[in-house]
Design a protein around this nucleic acid. Structure first.
Length: 255
DNA sequence: ATGCCTCCATCGTGGAGA
């Protein structure tokens, strides 16, 4: 079973690339972030023609998430129960006995800002909810654009980024709190190439210079850890014309 | 370096992203 995440930065723009990618990588489940589409504009028919069931939770201009699965999924939840949120950032569903929770974590803009406070409150609510989800669904995957670089080795220039957004002690403490729930960073279960990033700024030729951050993650529950066979970042779509600034991350589970 | 790119909303240009 393969489960993947991709921040597409506008599904309206990236749909052709998504369809190409799914044809080459027919993963069992894929969560999308930054679809930037209201639900009536979601390309459900095109994705169904490509062999995917889709659930989606979107809005105009910003945010927006989706869950695509080859077989039907059930138990869909949109956003964090009990956490009032105008922003469409979470979608969860169950497929093949695995609870899949996709998230577009808040950016946070800058430490001390209102958006940073929202990010902290959102993360606390996510953790409280996930504790219940894990109790109900021991086999759980949390994946998406976390907007957190968990360690200095996830940052191309940790000195320049020290204390900056994505790299603050507060954000990293929340990443550790998620690990404290029993979730494991699947990418780090394996030896990985140094300078492995999932996002490269559009500006400053960052991709060409491989100046990026690893902020898109796949965390697996303890009940699934033994089944993890691989976790890789697929840089290929970042080389497309008009690419997303993020690359997909793919988890492979043994049966 | 208040820069760089890309997208959205909108039709000239500002906000946001990370």
């Amino acid at each position: 079973m393969q489960i993947a995440t991709w921040n597409v930065n506008s599904l309206a723009v990236r749909l052709p690339q998504l369809l190409d990618w799914l044809q080459a990588h027919p993963v069992d489940a894929l969560v999308l972030q930054e679809t930037k589409l209201t639900d009536e504009k979601f390309p459900a028919a095109e994705l169904e023609a490509a062999g995917y069931h889709a659930s989606f939770h979107g809005q105009k201009t910003y945010n927006g998430v989706a869950l695509l699965t080859r077989s039907a999924h059930e138990g869909v939840i949109k956003n964090i129960p009990g956490f009032a949120d105008e922003q469409a950032r979470v979608i969860a569903g169950t497929v093949g006995g695995v609870r899949v929770v996709g998230g577009y974590f808040p950016n946070g803009q800058a430490p001390g800002s209102e958006k940073f406070a929202y990010k902290m409150a959102w993360l606390a609510a996510l953790e409280a909810w996930l504790q219940q989800e894990l109790a109900a669904h021991p086999k759980l995957v949390l994946l998406g654009d976390f907007n957190i670089a968990p360690e200095d080795r996830d940052v191309y220039d940790p000195v320049a980024w020290a204390g900056q957004i994505h790299c603050t002690a507060e954000e990293r403490a929340h990443f550790q709190a998620l690990q404290g729930l029993g979730l494991v960073d699947a990418f780090r279960l394996f030896e990985q190439p140094p300078k492995s990033w999932s996002w490269w700024d559009y500006r400053n030729l960052a991709f060409r210079k491989n100046q990026g951050l690893r902020i898109d993650h796949i965390l697996v529950s303890q009940a699934l850890e033994g089944q993890v066979a691989a976790c890789t970042i697929d840089k290929a779509p970042r080389k497309n014309e008009r690419p997303s600034d993020h690359a997909p991350v793919v988890l492979t589970l043994k049966d």
